[in-house]
Amino acid sequence: MSVANARNSWEKKVEGFVATGLIGISLGAQYALLALGFTLIFGILGVVNFAHGGFYVLGGYFGYAAGAMLGFPYPLAVVAAAAGTGALGYLFERFILERLIDDHLATLMLTLGLYLMMSSGILVVFGPESPSFEFPISGVLRGGGFYVPVANLIVLGVCSAAIGGLYWLVYHTDFGRALRALADDRAVATAQGLRPKLLFPLAFALATGLAGLTGALVTPILSLAPHIGDPVLATSFLVVILGGLGSVAGATVAAFIVGLIEAYSAVYLGGSKGALALFVLVLLMLVIRPSGLFGREARGA
């Protein structure tokens, strides 16, 4: 092999490595939005939301219905999907989940039942076939030794903005401070005048709206089908466990770690080996640091 050919081969490998990393970061941003919603519900309400993957799928179908059936522009369809899933989450928490909020087994069954109902409803309304729901912008951006699909960059930008907005809401507003107070000690926060029955539905709506937003953004790039909520829920669990239950910062960091591992392992190891790598990572984390990267025990709380 000539020097020129070897150099071109090396440059292509570097470009592929960088492009895979950018895709992994894009995946990480998607997983962060999902995991942050999951963590928000668990940290504040103490509820493991088995329906979280269902809200992701429903967001995709809401976006498809708003765009393909009602003729909404794609950005407006995404907003409508987030609003629709958020409203459904609010109603579910306010009128059903709230009645049994302190019964952990009952809330598990309720959220699992909601997920099954959403999956069945999607099958009845849209059928088992994947609808034609495509991202409106295609093409690949090249330059500076990298290439990445434009759609992934757009998703990364929107997800990053949503993550930043969520952090601002949680850490720099009265609403966020109230939610964190309820998460730390509900009894004391309630005695200080905070109203869980008002704030819990809003927190649940925020979390499910994030899941719907992610679904409407990502499913046109990946796929949209009634059954895709299962792997989404599994990935959310992995991210939350890796980051530490209830930790917003941990969920964010862990999401990008998982996204990068998934992208690089898919390219260099193969799909099945990539999934195995993720589970091995979580298993090692549970052995070395059972509380996760930023879990409460790890922070000394």
Rank of each mutant, 00 (worst) to 15 (best):
G212Q: 13
G16E: 14
S9P: 04
A35V: 11
L206V: 10
F133A: 13
P128G: 15
V3Y: 02
L108A: 07
A32T: 08
V232P: 02
S265Y: 03
F95E: 05
L281Q: 03
A275G: 11
Y171Q: 11
A216G: 10
E98H: 08
P131C: 11
Y115L: 05
V239C: 10
I261P: 00
F237L: 09
P136C: 12
G274N: 09
E15W: 01
L276N: 02
A207T: 08
G176N: 00
L194Y: 00
V258R: 00
L194D: 09
L222W: 07
G53F: 10
N49L: 11
N5Q: 12
L123K: 14
A106R: 09
L276M: 10
L33H: 04
L269C: 10
L108N: 06
G43E: 01
R296K: 13
A19E: 13
V148D: 03
P149V: 12
L182F: 05
Q192L: 15
L293D: 13
A266L: 10
L206W: 06
A51I: 12
V280F: 05
V48P: 05
Y74E: 05
L213R: 01
R7D: 12
G60L: 05
S120T: 15
S223R: 12
L141M: 14
Y31N: 14
L45Q: 06
G270L: 12
A29Q: 08
R195S: 13
P231F: 12
I261H: 04
L166C: 03
L169K: 03
A216N: 06
T208V: 04
S138I: 08
F146S: 14
R299W: 02
F50G: 15
Y61T: 12
G121K: 00
I96S: 09
V287I: 11
Q192M: 12
T214G: 12
G54E: 14
P226R: 04
L112W: 09
R142Y: 08
F175R: 10
Y264L: 06
A211C: 03
A298I: 05
A249W: 00
F95V: 13
L284G: 10
L286V: 06
I137E: 09
G89F: 00
L233N: 01
C159S: 14
L169Y: 03
H227N: 15
E98M: 15
T173S: 03
P201D: 03
V232W: 01
H227I: 07
E262I: 00
I25R: 02
G37K: 09
F55N: 01
E134H: 15
I44M: 02
R299C: 07
L224N: 08
G212A: 14
M117F: 08
G165L: 09
G157I: 04
I137L: 15
A178C: 02
A162T: 13
L281H: 00
L34W: 11
A83E: 11
G86I: 05
Y64W: 14
A80N: 02
R296Q: 14
I137F: 14
W168Q: 02
G60D: 00
A266W: 01
A68H: 11
T39V: 11
V155R: 05
F17V: 13
A301I: 07
G157V: 09
T173F: 02
F175M: 11
A277Y: 01
G209C: 06
A106Q: 09
A263D: 09
